[in-house]
């Protein structure tokens, strides 16, 4: 009998406590795992220095974060989506369909993508063309489009070491992969002239040609890593000849285990990425649901704090962790202060 009473009373407790689910007083963010470390650093400092609770930072990927942002307006939806690639028209359409009309786009800085191998291994100096020739499914040899015959880096470029090709690259769910495809593989495709050959083979269809460029070999020499950089790192530790793709900040935290390669002759660093000399970098963003700005306590303060010189400036903790500070930060700060919603995508 007491069991029955217990269950009835416990159900009653749950029912009443659902009623006291008070207004949310903490900020909720979700999205890119690349932005995650920066967001946690800011969230931690925000919680320490302001009277608001520390924001909750979820990861899960840029695309997933933007989708969650666009689920609608209300306290059980997130306030901010972190993203390592720019928002897409499809996201904006989804947002609009769910009543999320005004979105504040905040660019927090730039992130470099580096190519690194085991610390005990040889030095590498790559160009995008090397990577295209090493990893593409099809390459042009003597004017003919053939399945990629290259097995070692020396075959790709005689200046490189005669080591077997084995690359660990981010899987397609990562925002990093998009940048890798665009800034390395596509650039290499054009550089080697393969793009023109592919276009010619498809009767001048450039979209088809780009697709052919970005199709990577599937014979096991190019391995997609769907996990995190920690997984890539352990794969490299197990295989001394392999080369992995990392974020600059990850490399900077593991300089005792990894040796970084140059790209087009430039060593990746915060300075070379800021100056634009290092070619493989991308902007990092977060997107704020403006309808929540006056509803969730501290949201405006958090966004302003994130882009303040104290945090995102060139001497701030984000820069020392590996974020390349945005030269146009002042513009972003003004935009945040004035709450300027993002316009339609220009490109």
């Amino acid at each position: 009998m007491s069991l029955l009473k217990l269950s009835v009373s416990s159900l009653a407790i749950v029912a009443t406590s659902a009623g006291i689910a008070a207004a949310r007083d903490n900020i909720q963010t979700a999205g890119s795992s690349t932005v995650l470390p920066y967001a946690t650093i800011v969230a931690e400092a925000f919680g320490e220095n302001f009277d608001f609770p520390t924001p909750v930072v979820e990861s899960g990927g840029s695309g997933a974060g933007r989708k969650k942002l666009c689920e609608g307006v209300g306290e059980n939806t997130i306030d901010i989506a972190n993203s390592s690639s720019r928002i897409k028209q499809s996201d904006i359409d989804l947002c609009a369909a769910n009543g999320v009309t005004d979105i504040l786009e905040v660019r927090i800085g730039y992130d470099g993508i580096v190519f690194a191998s085991d610390i005990a291994g040889p030095d590498y100096a790559f160009t995008p063309a090397d990577w295209f020739k090493a990893l593409a499914a099809q390459v042009v040899v003597d004017g003919q489009i053939v399945a990629n015959p290259n097995k070692s880096w020396a075959q790709v470029n005689p200046a490189l070491k005669d080591k077997p090709i084995l690359a660990f690259i981010p899987g397609t769910k990562h925002g990093t992969r998009e940048v890798f495809d665009e800034k390395v593989i596509l650039a290499g495709c054009e550089e080697t002239g393969a793009m023109a050959a592919f276009a010619a083979a498809n009767g001048g269809d450039e979209d088809k040609a780009e697709e052919m460029c970005m199709a990577l070999r599937t014979d096991g020499l190019s391995v997609d890593i769907d996990g995190d950089y920690t997984e890539t790192l352990s794969r490299i530790a197990a295989n001394g000849d392999a080369i992995g793709v990392f974020g600059l900040s990850f490399y900077q935290n593991n300089t005792d285990k990894l040796k970084v390669a140059t790209m087009s002759g430039v060593v990746p660093s915060v300075e070379t990425i800021a100056s634009g000399d290092y070619p493989v970098s991308r902007p990092l963003y977060f997107y704020v649901k403006m309808a929540h700005l006056d509803v969730i306590p501290g949201l405006q303060d958090y966004v302003e704090f994130f882009v303040s010189d104290e945090m995102a400036g060139p001497d701030g903790p984000l820069a020392s962790y590996g974020l390349v500070s945005d030269p146009e930060l002042a513009k972003t700060q003004a935009m945040v202060a004035n709450r300027v919603a993002m316009g339609p995508l220009s490109n």
Partner: peptide, 14 residues
């Protein structure tokens, strides 16, 4: 959303 960075201690139940 529980796989997240949470620093704030939750209050006493309920």
């Amino acid at each position: 959303g529980m796989v997240a960075f949470v620093r704030e201690f939750p209050a006493a139940p309920p």
